[in-house]
């Protein structure tokens, strides 16, 4: 069931989370922990790379919502990249593109962070 993994990569003040597998109500707590960890370390510039994510449920989407206010208040942001068409559709249906910056690849997301420095 819990075939979900998060790998973290820090580059300067930006942290990239590579997520893989199924992000649903059962695996969401693991993802929540890794973002919480970043926030505790005061690393508020976060890129989430969706390249290897095959499915995301509403509980998975909820994880982003749980932190975004806090992160943005500290002048940080969560940017998303490398979404498959299927995953993007789920985000799109809910209107997430109106709330988050979703870009095609990781380097672009990092670049956007650097521009706003």
């Amino acid at each position: 069931m819990s075939d979900f993994t998060v790998r973290r990569k820090d580059a300067g003040d930006i942290s990239v989370l590579n997520i893989e597998g199924y992000l649903d109500a059962h695996t969401a707590p693991a993802f929540e922990d890794s973002i919480k960890q970043l926030v505790e370390e005061n690393r508020n510039r976060i890129v989430v790379n969706f390249d290897k994510l095959s499915y995301i449920s509403s509980a998975g989407l909820g994880v982003f919502m749980g932190f975004i206010e806090d992160i943005r208040a500290k002048n940080g942001d969560i940017k998303m990249s490398n979404m498959s068409e299927k995953v993007y559709k789920i985000f799109d249906l809910l209107g997430f593109p109106n709330l988050y910056e979703i870009v095609s690849d990781e380097t672009e997301a990092i670049k956007k962070f650097k521009e706003t420095k």
Binding site: S58, G62, V63, M65, I68, L93, L94, G95
Partner: peptide, 28 residues
Amino acid sequence: DRKTFVSMIYAIMDFKKGKMTFCRAGHC
């Protein structure tokens, strides 16, 4: 709580005017 949200559609069917008006809030 911030993690929770709802996708929904609300529609009103008006039989007098023969029309349906609706809004989609992130729903299918």
